[in-house]
């Protein structure tokens, strides 16, 4: 190897990752973001993933197909997640697992209790 790369680049990425981890923790436990907490924490996780992939996994050095494999697989994860959620959200109340508020047992008058009770 002709030129010796310094290790400080890696350490710099690591510092950013640590800071982001602490930020996630503070956001999640100290500052209550409510509905924004999920997008915020997921956004930070994506940024961290990109940093790890690009620099620790040396994706910056790779070209072509090797670069797109991981994003493509994430896309398919999103596909299953997205369409399943979309379907779950548009379902009628009765078809949801949490949808039935009353017992499904038929309500019989007391005189017709099933035998054996």
């Amino acid at each position: 190897m002709a030129k010796k790369k310094s290790t400080w680049g890696y350490v710099g990425v690591w510092v950013v990752l640590v800071v982001l981890t602490v930020v996630t923790w503070v956001l999640g436990t100290k500052l209550k973001l409510g509905p924004y907490s999920l997008p915020a924490s997921m956004g930070i996780a994506v940024v961290k993933t990109v940093l790890v992939a690009m620099f620790f996994m040396h994706l910056v050095e790779q070209r072509g197909t090797r670069r797109v494999v991981l994003p493509v697989s994430a896309l398919f994860l999103g596909l299953l997640l997205g369409l399943s959620l979309l379907e779950a959200m548009t379902r009628i109340q009765m078809a949801r697992p949490n949808g039935i508020n009353e017992e499904l047992e038929p309500k019989r008058p007391a005189t017709t209790r099933p035998v054996g009770h």
Partner: peptide
């Protein structure tokens, strides 16, 4: 082919919107 799996579930309690898509 990856976008069409729900056509197996038209009568499984899937949402009508999902079935249409």
């Amino acid at each position: 082919g990856f976008f069409s799996w729900g056509h197996h579930m038209f009568v499984s309690g899937q949402s009508t919107f999902g079935s249409g898509v």
